[in-house]
Design a protein around this nucleic acid. Sequence first.
DNA 1: GCATGTTTTGGACTATCGGTATAATATATT
DNA 2: AATATATTATACCGATAGTCCAAAACATGC
Lengths: 294, 294
Amino acid sequence: MNDRKRQVLLTAQRLFIDKGFSTTSVQDILDESNISKGTFYNYFSSKNECLKAILEHAHDETTVRRHELLIGQNLSDKNILVEQILIRMHLNREHNLLPIFEAVFHSGDSDLRGFIKNMLLAEFSWLTRRLVDVYGKDAVPYAADCAVMLFGMMQQILHAWSAVSKEEMDSLKLVTFLLRRIDSIMPGMISTKDAFFTEDVFSKLSGDVEDQTETKEQLLERLAGFSDSLVDDALPAGKQYIQFLLEELRSECPRIFVLESIVRSFRETFKGFSNEPEAQELAYKVWRYVDTLD
Amino acid sequence: MNDRKRQVLLTAQRLFIDKGFSTTSVQDILDESNISKGTFYNYFSSKNECLKAILEHAHDETTVRRHELLIGQNLSDKNILVEQILIRMHLNREHNLLPIFEAVFHSGDSDLRGFIKNMLLAEFSWLTRRLVDVYGKDAVPYAADCAVMLFGMMQQILHAWSAVSKEEMDSLKLVTFLLRRIDSIMPGMISTKDAFFTEDVFSKLSGDVEDQTETKEQLLERLAGFSDSLVDDALPAGKQYIQFLLEELRSECPRIFVLESIVRSFRETFKGFSNEPEAQELAYKVWRYVDTLD
DNA sequence: GCATGTTTTGGACTATCGGTATAATATATT
DNA sequence: AATATATTATACCGATAGTCCAAAACATGC
């Protein structure tokens, strides 16, 4: 991903958040980011694809940061779950990307709709898994229901809030409030065996709908490629980390905790540099791969 | 409201539900309802106004039928509340207008957005009042929260359902399921005094946001006008009812239960006739007025 | 430094959209 | 029959997403 392209992407994101997707014309993006129409359509094959890229970027960022929060922590810690949910809200300039999600969901392009749908399902899937982490194995048949309901409550409360108040929403207050509601709901559902989504549907909700991980070879290749792209004198630590990662990944039995630690350091190293995004993306991919090992 | 205009409106509604609002062009409506562009813009000043008319119509219809369900019933009967909620879902061809609500909410036109916002607030307001009916005075500080959450859960479950299943949703099952969740939530909120929306905001949510009622004189005038518009030989019962309503409304102290009964019969009389819509609209207005008497 | 290939530019162009305007025609009313 | 109102068909407008392309700017290897 080009630096220029990324800048266009961020500009577009800001405009979409400020003005809404449909009300932001391509021309607005061109004016604001000082590129020509040709360049825009060189980067993105359409306005929709531009939005897709933005959402994908936000999704990746969210996933990485949520993963980060969990390292070395107890899976059942409810506070961590709160923080993880807050990430999505805060990341999009105080929950302003979610409306875009919805706005587009019903709007026109079926391709885009499918894309959003998958993303939504991925979010449901993630939250379902996390709810099981927090509420235990007994919650398995009801976690998907609760995940969907939690999302619905959050979204609608945000709507209602923006409709009646100009003040900023206290996200933390909202999420903790909602988790207390789940605290009330979950035991009742478990004791009365009262689930809405049946097993088969539930499996689609909780199944893995995220994009598939790359193969190990592809991953190693990208890592090596990234290392080569670095100029020799700058950030020698970065190259060292990559070298170590490559060796550990190629080894007979990679040590997961070592990998996680090194990946974390690897990401930290590139914080604030121009190639941070690519480093972050790579770190995420490695993480995803490491996840499949245990 | 013209018959032709009403037919155009219904055609547009069908198209909006089938194809979505933004993807349905005015030309589509023209083709489907066999009218010219001129006629359309004679009826509606814009595509947005057309949608507004549809939503207003649906809102009125919902309100009347919900009111009907409550006559002579116990306000705290939970089954009635279930039926009332189902009306909105069933009225719009299995919940398909709700997505239009949302789609437009974030999309472009600020005038339309305000309109939808008010309609949404009216719905919150109604449900808030009904939840107090059902759960008692103790629920007052928490009813608005629960109303918003109930809506959010319903909407998101509908989303999720349509994303993972082609089968038709069992609306009754959904609503009863959700009310059981409110059963779990409400006591906890009351006992821990755990409300999200504070008093001042809450008042906007539960306040009267519906369009103001007409004055008594306007109402009587419209009733008389409608009576005059009827041909003499057809539906003499209809004219009788109107005559009675006029007299009762003009009397010193109108008897509410009598008015409610007669209005009901009045509506029934015109079921299936071409002027049913106007009769229904009038019945609704009378009902609204009668409501202000006690 | 020069040549080669790639990226970017800016504008002309198309098709579709919501909406306006109007002159001709059909339908009702009196 | 005359007048008024409703409807039609069509041309037009400005904005939009998206295409196309030749010229300019930039980068890269020799």
